[in-house]
Design a binder for these strands. Structure first.
Lengths: 230, 230
DNA sequence: CTGATGAAACTGGTCAAGCCAATTTCGAAA
DNA sequence: TTTCGAAATTGGCTTGACCAGTTTCATCAG
């Protein structure tokens, strides 16, 4: 008969709404731990399975973070941004990971790189040179440099990997790195390292290229650590 | 000191991956009704609440549509590529990427692995043995094996990387691999390769470990290609 | 024979209670 | 005071049951 009845939305959606509201109201503050599942379920007047379904919805949309054996926490994602925050991953680890991955990739890139590939890298390098000479910071070119080299290995997954690690959206690392890189002399150092990498690539010397890439990213890490204010 | 992130993913995520893959593989077609919750849960070997949690995740991302009293339907808007691979990245590339990355990581893991680390890997390996002996397919254990080894390198970024590559949610690779791995003798081969890796790790022989890991992933790729129908 | 009907058989929605595993807490021992 | 481990706490998952919409289909009125 009467079909026009939005009826009630599913329970887990209603519960998710309530919790979301409690968070936005400030009832639950950022990073704060929510009551235990059993207790929260009782407070909201629903069963634990229903509460769990709601929590999964909230977890997916990034509103809360669930830690096994510990508790449910309000995601402090869009807020904080102290220094090297993050749970388990530090900027240092990021740079070391890049060093390992990219120095491995460049070995294969060395073997497979074409003349066009070399030309692309050379052009990027030249653009960087002029940028640095004129006091600009070639951040985007830096990205292209690493990405283009990764492409030469001929593996799309690896290329994506290098790009993702360069960006690392999750934490504000990219920005921190950029800001510290502002001094021209530091960019000048980075540029010479890039040139060393290119030279090895042009000579198709895998070992040299590997070392150069590793050294470059290692130095980048160090430069950044040293310049860290405190 | 350094906190080690969870190796296992929550069950609902694993279940959601399986269902998502079954849809993309064409196992479940567009608009088609999936088996009833009770039945599907049994088929996937999980409880109904866990299945429901996975369905909520899939519902949120728009993969399925749930109609009360009627059934679970594959969202018709989720068309697109049904058969094999996506744009630029092929399953082959994925496995080759894993081979490069993981064989690089294991070198460092070799140097840094602790006695507890070795014990963890050994236990995982033993569980795999019994699983294989009793005809089960130790998919999750396989994941833990690779992830636990990656953890030993002591770099959270790399660990996450290995996990992400193993999962590769975007494409139905994971499940395709799983399905093809169904024959006990193939799992038996994989097991022996795992044991070779562990032996090298236990002996702290970086080169041997690197070769063993690379060989394992290379063989996995080959097994999968050979068993591919078309 | 045709079509309306309504009960029974599904199917999803929710709840209750319990056990397991990871984490945290906190007091006893060194 | 520091360390360590047992107990309490917390999330993870299962089993089993009942409720509430949908669908199915045999039955019966026309």
């Amino acid at each position: 008969m009467n079909s026009i009845r939005p009826v009630e939305r599913r329970l887990y959606q209603q519960v998710a709404d309530q919790i979301r509201a409690l968070i936005q109201t400030g009832h639950f503050r950022l990073g704060q731990r929510l009551p235990a599942e059993r207790e929260l379920a009782q407070q909201l007047g629903v069963s634990r399975p229903s509460l769990r379904e709601a929590l999964i919805a909230l977890e997916i949309e990034g509103a809360v973070e669930i830690r096994m054996g510990s508790g449910i926490y309000v995601s402090s994602s869009t807020e904080r941004r102290s220094v090297s925050s993050s749970i388990g991953e530090s900027p240092v680890e990021l740079m070391e990971a890049r060093a390992m991955v990219e120095s491995t990739i460049i070995v294969q890139a060395c073997a497979r790189i074409t003349l066009e590939g070399l030309k692309s890298v050379r052009q990027i390098l030249e653009s960087m040179r002029t940028d640095v000479a004129e006091g600009r910071k070639p951040v985007e070119l830096d990205r292209q440099f690493h990405l283009t080299i990764a492409q030469q290995a001929g593996n799309g997954v690896l290329t994506r990997l290098v790009g993702d690690l360069f960006d690392e959206r999750h934490s504000p690392l990219a920005t921190q790195l950029r800001e510290h890189f502002e001094t021209p002399d530091i960019w000048s150092l980075a540029l010479s390292e890039h040139e060393a990498i290119f030279a090895a690539l042009e000579a198709r010397d895998p070992l040299l290229a590997q070392v150069a890439m590793h050294r470059h990213l290692e130095q980048s890490k160090r430069r950044w650590l040293d310049s860290e204010p405190r």
